[in-house]
Design a protein around this nucleic acid. Structure first.
Lengths: 221, 221
DNA sequence: AAATATTTTTAGACAAACCTAAATTATTTT
DNA sequence: AAAATAATTTAGGTTTGTCTAAAAATATTT
């Protein structure tokens, strides 16, 4: 694997996160995600095309090549391993890990990452519940279900939160919901699709449709 | 503390390492250390002068300002803490830690470094025996003595090796000498200033003057 | 299908960090 | 102290990644 600049890596990672079902991403979406201008995106796509990391034809969007996907998974691996390290070993809070991992993920020594993985005991999920790709870029499909789709009175464990904005994290922390929280859905209100959920040893609480759509859980055994 | 580019940080660190008794460094020395060209050094010195990190007058060398010294110690702190982490936690060998730490040292979160320090148990020396500045930039003067100056039959512990070239590290590893090795000088040969030294439970070995001048030890209590 | 609006690309500039070659200043030799 | 040598700086150019403003292509309305 060749060496890529921080900027190139950020573009690749952002494309990976934004890609739709068919893998395509538009210039404006990418510019928005990276807080840059569409013209800059076009410039970079030309470069990434030459480096064979994306497929790109002017005016028709772009998508990652196989090479590009491999790189994206490698960067995500680095990011999530560092997040795990920060939370687990350095006792950073959930909300803090992301920003620091954004910097650490660009240190590209393969040996560093593989040894870090080993040191951490080969964790399979980061502190937000997102799966960590292994050293070959294989990623576990976290077969989790959205809270909205969880049957009533079935206990499950929160394993993933898709929106990780500060506002979302604040709300979750207020409701005392985090990765690993065990809960069950007690009632579903058809009017606004809000849910009444029960967390062990706490009074039942209410969850809006919006929130429930962003919380993913795994059925308990 | 403001944020500086990787390049600026590398210049500051290099000046710190090269500085003579009066703190000055020349353009050519710095260009050599950084494997760059003298013209590039001049460009950067103008910039660092504007940022008040160095004192600089054209044609008369330069030296770090107090701000610059503070920054240098911060970068050295990051570097040495990461070296300690790599060696101690990830089991990197002595020779490998430096290159990786060169990248990690530019991740500038203060909280990250202070938490890393705590996680590592506030180590005072890195794996090469160099002292680690504390969070205020205070650095311990390692009051160590060169092997050449160690009195006969006095046991001491290796605490620092000043030349860390691959050739040096190879020789040290062959002679089974490392940081923490306990030894004493048995004889001194005036002809070439070579030493006969004894390491616990090993046959006595010979050390050239050149080598002995690069090994620093602390008297045992 | 023409007109309008939106998206994307091109053209041309800029800052950071580097370079080479030429000019300038400092140092050393004679 | 002049000449020769060495060190340093200036001038002008390159690459990377960004920008703004204008042009071109695509998508949406009417």
């Amino acid at each position: 694997m060749l060496n890529y600049s921080t900027s190139e890596e950020n573009y690749i990672k952002a494309i990976f996160h934004l890609q739709h079902a068919d893998g395509t991403v538009t210039t404006n979406e990418l510019a928005g995600e990276l807080r840059t201008k569409p013209a800059s995106v076009t410039d970079m796509m030309k470069k990434l095309k030459i480096k064979k990391l994306v497929h790109y034809e002017a005016y028709h969007g772009f998508r990652l090549s196989n090479e590009g996907k491999k790189l994206a998974l490698l960067i995500i691996r680095r990011h999530r391993l560092w997040e795990f390290f920060l939370a687990e070993k350095l006792r950073f809070s959930w909300e803090e890990v992301h920003a620091v991992a954004e910097d650490l993920e660009h240190v590209s020594s393969k040996k560093l990452i593989d040894k870090l993985d080993e040191f951490l005991g080969f964790p399979r999920f980061d502190p937000h519940g997102d799966p960590i790709p292994d050293s070959h870029g294989r990623i576990e499909a976290s077969k989790q279900v959205c809270l909205q789709d969880l049957p009533l009175n079935k206990t499950a464990t929160v394993g993933h939160v898709s929106d990780q904005s500060p506002a979302m994290l604040e709300l979750l922390s207020h409701k005392k919901i985090g990765i690993g929280t065990k809960l069950e859905v007690k009632r579903k209100f058809g009017f606004d699709n809000s849910l009444e959920i029960k967390i062990r040893q706490q009074a039942p609480i209410n969850i809006s449709e919006q929130l429930s759509k962003n919380i993913f859980v795994k059925y308990d055994e």
